[in-house]
Computed example of a mutant assay.
Amino acid sequence: MNYSENTLNRSVILTCAVTGSGNSADKTPHLPITPKQIADASIEAAKAGAAIAHIHVRDPKTGAASRDSALYREVVDRIRSSDTDVIINLTTGMGGDLYLGPGDNPLNFTDDTDCVGQIERIVHVEELLPEICSLDCGSFNCAPDNYVYVSSAEMLKVGAQRLQQLGVKPELEVFELGHIWFAKQLLKQGLLDAPPLFQICLNVPWAAQATTRNFQAMVDNIPNGANWGGFALSRFQMPMVAQSALLGGNVRVGLEDNIFLEKGVLATNAQLVDRARTILDLMGTSLQTPAEARETLQLKKQR
Rank of each mutant, 00 (worst) to 15 (best):
M1I: 09
N6K: 14
N6T: 10
T7P: 06
V12E: 08
T15R: 10
N23V: 08
A25W: 01
H30G: 10
P32T: 11
I33G: 00
K36W: 15
A39E: 01
K47V: 10
A48R: 05
G49P: 11
H54L: 06
D59H: 06
P60F: 04
P60K: 04
K61T: 06
G63Y: 08
A65V: 05
R67C: 03
V76C: 13
V76Y: 00
D77H: 14
D77L: 11
I79A: 00
S81E: 09
D83I: 00
I88K: 04
I88M: 11
L90N: 08
T92M: 06
L98N: 09
Y99G: 10
N105H: 14
N105V: 10
P106N: 12
D111G: 07
T113E: 07
T113W: 01
C115A: 03
C115S: 13
I119F: 09
I119N: 02
R121N: 10
I122H: 02
V123F: 01
V125P: 08
V125C: 09
E126W: 09
E127D: 13
E127I: 04
D136T: 13
S139C: 01
D145W: 06
S151P: 02
E154M: 15
G159P: 00
Q165F: 13
L166H: 07
L166G: 02
E171G: 11
L177T: 14
G178D: 12
I180Y: 04
F182A: 02
K184Y: 10
K184W: 03
Q185L: 13
L187N: 10
K188D: 12
G190N: 05
F198T: 03
I200E: 05
P205T: 03
A207R: 13
A208E: 14
N224S: 15
N227G: 02
G229D: 02
A232E: 12
M238V: 04
A242R: 11
Q243N: 14
S244D: 08
A245F: 08
A245R: 00
A245L: 10
G248N: 01
R252G: 07
D257P: 06
F260S: 09
E262P: 07
V265M: 08
L266K: 13
T268C: 00
T268G: 08
T268F: 07
A270R: 03
L272P: 05
V273K: 05
V273D: 00
V273L: 03
I279Y: 00
I279N: 04
L282W: 05
A291H: 02
A293D: 11
E295Y: 00
K301A: 15
K301G: 13
Q302C: 14
Q302R: 07
